[in-house]
Computed example of a mutant assay.
Amino acid sequence: MVSRSNGDGGRRTIWQARDYGFNIGLRAKVEEILDYMYMIPVPARLVERGRDWPWSSARWYV
């Protein structure tokens, strides 16, 4: 995690406090996370389908 002082003694971090790392042990969980990740541009109305996002690797998995 990268952090820097904001001048008043506090710390600023890149990652939000609610984010945390965890191990993925089940194939179903991996697929759930990938489905979520690939669909992020859709609700933002950047593309109609997740695999249409130019920088996505989804087209190789669907």
Rank of each mutant, 00 (worst) to 15 (best):
R4T: 12
A58T: 01
L34S: 04
R49S: 03
E32I: 02
R51A: 08
Y36H: 10
N23H: 07
W55Y: 15
G10P: 04
W60Y: 15
Q16S: 09
V47W: 04
V47H: 03
M39R: 15
Y61W: 09
N6A: 12
Y36P: 01
I24P: 01
K29V: 05
F22R: 15
G21Y: 06
K29W: 06
E48M: 03
W60E: 12
L34W: 04
R45Y: 03
D8E: 13
S56N: 09
R45G: 02
D8P: 02
M39V: 02
E48Y: 01
V62Y: 09
A58V: 01
G7C: 10
G50A: 04
R18D: 14
G50P: 05
G21P: 07
G50M: 01
S3E: 10
R49C: 01
Q16D: 09
P54G: 00
S3Y: 07
G25H: 04
Q16I: 05
V62E: 14
S5D: 14
R12H: 08
R27P: 02
E48G: 07
Y61M: 12
V62K: 05
G10C: 11
V47C: 06
Y36T: 06
A58L: 00
A28S: 15
Y38F: 15
R49T: 02
A44E: 13
I24S: 00
Y20R: 14
I33N: 01
R12S: 08
Y36W: 11
R12C: 12
E32H: 02
N23I: 04
N6E: 12
D35Q: 08
L26D: 14
G10M: 14
W15H: 10
V2C: 07
W53N: 03
R59T: 05
R45E: 11
D52I: 00
I40A: 11
V42S: 00
E32Y: 03
S57R: 10
V30I: 09
R59C: 04
R11T: 10
V62C: 06
I24Q: 01
D35P: 02
R59I: 10
P43K: 04
D19I: 07
S57D: 15
E32P: 02
M37V: 11
P54Y: 04
R4D: 11
G9D: 10
V2K: 13
E48S: 05
V47M: 02
G9W: 04
S56K: 06
R4P: 02
V42K: 00
A17P: 11
W55R: 12
R51T: 06
D52R: 01
Y38S: 10
V47G: 04
E31G: 03
G25K: 04
N23A: 08
D8W: 10
N23Q: 09
A44L: 15
P43E: 03
D52C: 00
D35A: 12
L34A: 14
V2A: 09
S57H: 09
R4H: 11
R18H: 11
M37C: 13
D35T: 11
A28L: 05
Y20T: 07
S5G: 12
S56G: 08
S5M: 07
E31Q: 07
I24D: 01
G7Y: 06
P41N: 02
D8M: 09
G21N: 07
R59L: 05
W53V: 01
R49H: 10
P43A: 02
A44K: 15
L34H: 05
L34K: 08
M1I: 09
L46W: 05
L46F: 08
G21L: 12
S5W: 07
Y36G: 08
G21M: 06
Y61P: 00
D19G: 06
